[in-house]
Structure formats: structure tokens, C-alpha cells
Computed example of a mutant assay.
Amino acid sequence: MTLPAGPPRLPAADQWPVLTGPDCPECEGPDDVTWQGAATGLDYGGAPVHLWECGGCCAEWAIPAHHWPVLDGPDCPSCLTDVTSWATLAPDVPGDLWTCHNGHEFVLTPEGLTVLPEDTA
């Protein structure tokens, strides 16, 4: 006999290609963040969103649901590798936070500009 599986801890892989949830925007803690499910975001013009909740501070927030190019991300501007993964929405600069397999992080803005961590300091 097998027990039924619990609710998924992350959205579908084509919409959330990393193995961990986002950092909490309130307490910045990544450890106890759980995905609450999909919804329609009124703040996002009725677009689909993913709802998240922090178990540490109980903050709730939404992130727009997108289909991210898991295998076809932008090249890393630091080491020029083409092996990059979408991580989350960037917390400090409007855009998407990407990481490369060498551990570099960078933001790609909606205008297509690359912002490095040292550029935001």
C-alpha cells in the first residue's frame, strides 16, 4: 500500500526550473518557503501567478508564472558559459536573476540589459 503524495513543494519544472523556492522578500530567508499554488494575480493584470509563503515570518507574495528557457538561458557575462539557469525574480533590480554553473549571478532586465551584482552595490 502506498500513501498519497502530499502537495507539490514547487511549481511545474517548466515554470520553476530550480530545485529550491525563492528567498522570502520580507525576512530574506530561503529555508522555509513553500509554494501555495497557482492563482490569478490582480496586481499583475489578471495574469497567472505562483503564490508563496514563508514559514519563518508568515509573509505571502506572488511571482508571475512564466515558462522559463531552462536549457536556453543567456550566456554568463562573467565567464561566458552558456550553461545558465533562471533562479528567481531579482530582488533589487527589475528583471530576472540568473546563475551559471560556475556560481556567477547576474540580472537580465526586460530591456535585455545585463546587471552584475557589483553594479547594484
Rank of each mutant, 00 (worst) to 15 (best):
L3V: 10
G6N: 08
G6I: 11
R9Y: 06
L10C: 00
L10T: 02
A12N: 05
A12C: 02
A13D: 06
D14V: 05
V18F: 06
V18W: 01
T20Y: 13
T20G: 00
P22C: 04
C24W: 14
P25V: 07
G29A: 00
T34D: 06
Q36W: 01
L42G: 12
P48G: 06
H50E: 00
E53W: 00
C54I: 05
C54Q: 12
C54L: 06
C54M: 08
C57P: 07
C57H: 08
A59N: 05
A59H: 11
A59V: 04
W61A: 07
I63S: 15
H67Y: 01
W68K: 03
P69K: 01
V70P: 00
L71R: 13
D72E: 12
G73A: 04
G73K: 03
G73D: 06
D75Q: 09
C76Y: 10
P77F: 09
P77Q: 09
L80K: 12
T81D: 09
T81I: 10
V83E: 13
T84A: 08
W86H: 07
T88E: 14
T88K: 01
A90G: 11
L97S: 03
T99E: 05
C100M: 07
H101M: 12
N102R: 02
E105H: 13
F106M: 03
V107W: 09
L108V: 15
T109E: 08
P110C: 03
E111P: 01
T114P: 00
T114D: 01
V115K: 06
V115P: 03
D119C: 03
T120R: 14
A121C: 04
